[in-house]
Simulated scan of single mutants.
Amino acid sequence: MVLALILLAVAIVCVIAIFREFKRQNMFGAAFSAISALVFGFFSIATIYWELIRPLVTGE
């Protein structure tokens, strides 16, 4: 569960970086931040699902 929280924190920082790089008009940095936010966000949501939601639904 700690891994999911760390990944979520990194994804939130990446979203903040997207806006900062758009303000600086650095499109390469904004694109890199967007890809990072998508990847880290996906893995954080997948980890939360796998650790919390799936055991409740399957009854494990």
Rank of each mutant, 00 (worst) to 15 (best):
R20G: 11
T47M: 07
F19E: 05
I6G: 00
A30K: 01
R24T: 01
S44E: 06
R20E: 08
I18K: 07
E51N: 11
A31T: 11
F43Y: 15
I48S: 09
G29Y: 00
V57M: 14
L38K: 00
A11P: 01
F28Q: 07
V57G: 02
A31E: 03
F32G: 12
A17K: 12
V13F: 09
G29V: 06
I53S: 12
E60L: 13
Y49M: 10
L8Y: 09
L52P: 00
V57C: 08
L56A: 13
A9T: 14
A30E: 03
F28P: 00
R24L: 07
L3M: 13
T47P: 02
G59A: 10
F42G: 14
A34V: 05
A37I: 02
A17N: 13
G59M: 04
A9V: 09
E60M: 09
I45H: 10
C14N: 13
A34T: 15
I53N: 03
I35M: 12
G41N: 07
A34C: 12
I35T: 11
S44P: 05
C14M: 11
L5Q: 14
A37G: 05
F42R: 08
A4Q: 05
A34S: 15
P55W: 01
L56T: 04
A34Y: 02
S44Y: 03
K23I: 03
S44G: 11
F42V: 13
A30Y: 03
Q25P: 00
C14I: 00
G41Y: 06
V57E: 10
